[in-house]
Amino acid sequence: MSTNLHIDIVSDIACPWCAIGYARLEQALASLDGELQADVEWHAFELNPDPDSKPQPILQALSRKYGRSEAEMEAAQANMIEIATGLGLNFSKMQQRYTANTFDAHRLVKWAAEQGKATAMKQALFDAYFGHAENVGERDVLLRCVQKVGLDADAAQQMLASDAYVEEVRSDEARYQQAGVSSVPAFIINNQYLISGAQEPAYLVEALREIAQQGAEGAPA
């Protein structure tokens, strides 16, 4: 008999480690198939929360943010590209992307969740941003991602033109900031255990196994 876990994932579409972290979680869960199952719920976090900020070339922006040279940032990105490629992710345009505000993209993930497609939407957005250097703050890019996952682009356009899911995204961001989540990805298991960062699949397997075991031991007889 398998154990069920609930995993809340706090992440941003503009965060490469969030894409890598989820791909590693998928590998870990595949290794645990038959032993435990998990349902995933996505939560919003914005690395670039200013909706009026002008998109900047990513290497320039990261160099300014971290006080390191563009060459250093390029080397760090190259390392991430190698890791991502090994996980089957498309990061081929990672170095060509620009900074992006992801608020509407987070709204789109909330909307897709109502139709059981949150993870597919998140992955389509990751692919658009890291694989194709598209601006995931632009409406036409978002609608292409909607079509890619098989949802109704007209319905998505109407949703994005409204205030739908604005409060849900803001509530997410406030909740996890107040809970002390200051970097992403963050994985909260069963509302109780925090795993920070894009951990290796082997680490996740052991951590999830231990959490499931503790849950089983704490369950009423």
Rank of each mutant, 00 (worst) to 15 (best):
L208S: 10
R139S: 05
V10G: 01
G137A: 09
S182V: 07
A207K: 11
A128G: 09
P51W: 12
I13M: 10
G88A: 10
D172M: 09
V184P: 00
V10H: 03
A44W: 07
R64Y: 00
A155K: 14
F187H: 12
V184R: 03
F130M: 13
R175Y: 04
P185A: 08
R175M: 07
T119I: 14
L47D: 08
G34K: 08
L194K: 01
I211Q: 05
A23V: 14
V169L: 06
I20D: 04
A161M: 08
V205F: 09
S196P: 00
A113V: 00
A216N: 06
L151A: 12
L208G: 03
A124M: 05
T99E: 02
S11R: 02
Q27G: 05
Q77H: 11
A118E: 09
Q214H: 10
E206Q: 15
R139Y: 00
A133C: 10
Y129L: 06
A38L: 10
M159E: 05
F91I: 12
E72I: 09
R97Y: 07
R24K: 15
A124E: 03
V166L: 03
G88R: 09
A161E: 14
V205S: 02
V181I: 15
S182W: 00
P57N: 14
G88F: 10
I195E: 03
K122W: 00
D104N: 15
N90Y: 12
N90Q: 08
T85K: 15
Q95H: 14
R144I: 02
Y193A: 02
G86Q: 11
V136T: 15
A153D: 09
D152V: 03
E82A: 15
H43D: 06
I9W: 00
P185D: 08
F91A: 13
Q177T: 13
S171D: 10
A19L: 11
Q178E: 14
I7G: 07
A28C: 12
S11V: 01
D52G: 11
E72G: 05
C15F: 05
A84E: 10
A14E: 09
V166Q: 09
D163Q: 11
N48E: 13
H106L: 02
G150Q: 11
E217C: 00
N48H: 08
P16W: 13
R64V: 06
V141T: 15
D154S: 14
A156C: 04
V10P: 01
D8F: 08
D140C: 02
V136D: 04
G86C: 11
A76P: 07
G215M: 06
G21E: 08
I195T: 01
A19Y: 15
A61H: 13
Y66N: 12
L208P: 07
G86M: 11
F103K: 05
Y129G: 08
A216M: 09
R107N: 01
I195W: 03
G150H: 07
Y193T: 10
E134L: 15
R139W: 04
D52S: 15
H106A: 04
L108C: 03
N4W: 06
S196M: 01
N48Y: 13
Q177S: 13
